[in-house]
Design a protein around this nucleic acid. Structure first.
Length: 299
DNA sequence: TCCCAGGGGAGTT
DNA sequence: AACTCCCATGGG
């Protein structure tokens, strides 16, 4: 008879709107989920291995989450927070669809959520994202985790926990450079040290007002306006952030050619003012559309 | 070989 | 404040 304490259990979480896991977990917000069979996604939320899938029913869908129940019992709340299940995304989409330029975008992009990821891991992810590409970012993050060598097993599979700031700082710039991070290794090693030494307090950033939080993040090497906005949007609940990369810039310029300015800072400011707390959702929709719908996705 | 990839930062004007 | 160039590296 199997030990029930070590057996993953399946939890059904009802949601009142459609949720597409692929575009949510693997749409450019997060880089550490891997697809399994039949629409299943596997990954770590913190140290917790989780297997996720969606069951569609007539009256709304159910998120199926499989994981080991830990003693504290707060895993379900954490999962719901990570996936941002309590935000009424159907209402968000309805609001935004009133904008003629957005309506077709919203309709042709899968129904994703904006994640609440771990700020530290998200910061590292987007420091690595500069002048890089998504497959490479994934590989860099995975290599970092493998070198950190904190193995967790579940579902008969291996997961490597993402190193904390202290562990990453201990790797040092040269080792990171050896993983193919390029010039980003120097910034990442410096940031890991600043955080592990408590010179920079990442845990307080979420509670700061948007502009203060952004300014504070941008004091870190390798963190400019775009990286800061991604961290704020995808890990700190600042959904009024409007990160501008080349894809979003391209999309906004085409869709709003009459109203919008030109520089990235102008576009970011415009997005924040026009869409308010929906800005991050709009930005991610445009990114996804430009990258994988319009561009017909070269990974 | 050339070009691009979810930019940032320093130097110049 | 806006513009230019360089920062490493891997893949197409």
């Amino acid at each position: 008879m199997a030990n029930s304490k070590s057996m993953p259990l399946i939890f059904d979480i009802p949601i009142t709107y459609d949720l597409d896991l692929s575009s949510t977990l693997d749409g450019g917000q997060s880089f550490n989920w891997r697809p399994g069979n039949d629409g299943v996604w596997l990954g770590l939320i913190g140290n917790l291995p989780v297997k996720l899938s969606i069951d569609k029913h007539r009256n709304g869908s159910v998120v199926k989450a499989e994981y080991r129940l830990s003693p504290g019992g707060s895993d379900l709340d954490r999962l719901k927070w990570y996936l941002d299940l309590d935000t009424p995304y159907e209402a968000v989409r309805n609001r935004l669809s009133c904008d003629d330029n957005l309506e077709s975008i919203i309709r042709s992009v899968p129904k994703f959520n904006i994640l609440n990821q771990d700020p530290w891991q998200t910061l590292v992810s987007f420091i690595l994202s500069t002048q890089s590409n998504i497959p490479r970012i994934k590989r860099n993050l995975e290599d970092i985790s493998i070198v950190a060598n904190q193995l967790v097993t579940a579902f008969g599979l291996s997961f490597y926990r993402f190193p904390n700031p202290h562990e990453l700082a201990a790797m040092g710039e040269n080792k990171l450079r050896g993983l193919g991070l390029g010039y980003r290794a120097k910034n990442l090693a410096a940031v890991a040290s600043l955080i592990s030494e408590n010179t920079f307090n990442i845990k307080t950033v979420s509670a700061m007002p948007y502009k203060d939080a952004k300014q504070y993040l941008m004091a870190l090497p390798g963190v400019g306006p775009k990286v800061a906005d991604c961290v704020l949007a995808f890990s700190m609940g600042h959904t009024s952030a409007f990160p501008v990369d080349r894809w979003v810039s391209r999309g906004v310029k085409r869709m709003y050619s009459n109203t919008v300015k030109y520089s990235d800072p102008d576009i970011s400011k415009w997005g924040r003012e026009k869409f308010g707390s929906d800005a991050a959702y709009v930005q991610q929709s445009i990114f996804y559309y430009e990258r994988w719908v319009r561009g017909r996705g070269q990974s």
